[in-house]
Amino acid sequence: MSLASYIGCNIEIPINDEEYSDELFYIGCCFASEFDLLQVKKHQFTTPLVYEVSSHWGIEISECMNPETCAESKMKLMRLCEVMDSYLWKGDFFELYSCWVGEEAEKRDGEHTLQINNFEIDQIEIPEKTLVRFEK
């Protein structure tokens, strides 16, 4: 199984259809099927548009992860927030949810709201099955 990360938003975001990118991550298909996208949209997000954030592994930040993977997830999250900040207007938001492929419809374990430009990356924890709303 693979850990996939999804974003939900109210605006269209350009996707990168390449299977590999030199970027830290890209927005486009990697692990998830169209069915998985529909399930996460229906069961987790409040937004009409859903995208997989592909990086060949999802974004998960927790103490139980190995330090290298956790540090990579922190870099991915910071880059994601930077990219999304360029698309969002003041008062808008995007949502992030990570889970194992096939578990998109399962009950979430938690949720948080953070300001897109005002959080301390080393002070947050985002385990799998946690919905995070990033507000601008």
Score class of each variant (00 low, 15 high):
Glu135Ser: 02
Cys9Asn: 10
Trp100Asp: 12
Leu80Tyr: 06
Tyr87Arg: 03
Asp36Glu: 15
Glu128Tyr: 10
Pro14Leu: 08
Ile15Trp: 06
Thr130Asp: 11
Glu12Asn: 14
Gln123Thr: 06
Gln115Ile: 11
Tyr97Ile: 05
Glu104Asn: 06
Lys42Cys: 10
Glu52Gly: 00
Glu82Leu: 14
Leu88Val: 09
Ala105Met: 09
Tyr87Ile: 03
Glu135Ile: 05
Val53Trp: 08
Leu38Asn: 03
Gln44His: 03
Glu18Trp: 07
Leu77Ile: 04
Ser62Phe: 08
Cys30Arg: 05
Gln123Leu: 10
Phe35Ala: 02
Ile121Leu: 08
Trp89Phe: 13
Ile121Phe: 06
Cys9Pro: 09
Ser55Met: 11
Tyr20Gln: 13
Ile27Trp: 00
Gly8Phe: 01
Ile15Ala: 08
Asn118Leu: 07
Thr69Glu: 14
Gln39Tyr: 11
Gln123Val: 07
Glu52Cys: 03
Lys42Phe: 10
Glu125Asp: 00
Asn16Asp: 13
Glu111Met: 13
Trp100Met: 14
Leu80Lys: 11
Met84Thr: 02
Val101Glu: 11
Thr130Leu: 09
Ser62Glu: 15
Tyr51Lys: 06
Phe35Leu: 05
Ser55Val: 12
Glu104Cys: 08
Val50Asp: 10
Ile7Glu: 03
Ile126Gly: 04
Lys76Ser: 11
Asp92Pro: 11
Pro127Asp: 01
Lys129Phe: 05
Trp100His: 14
Leu131Met: 15
Thr113Val: 15
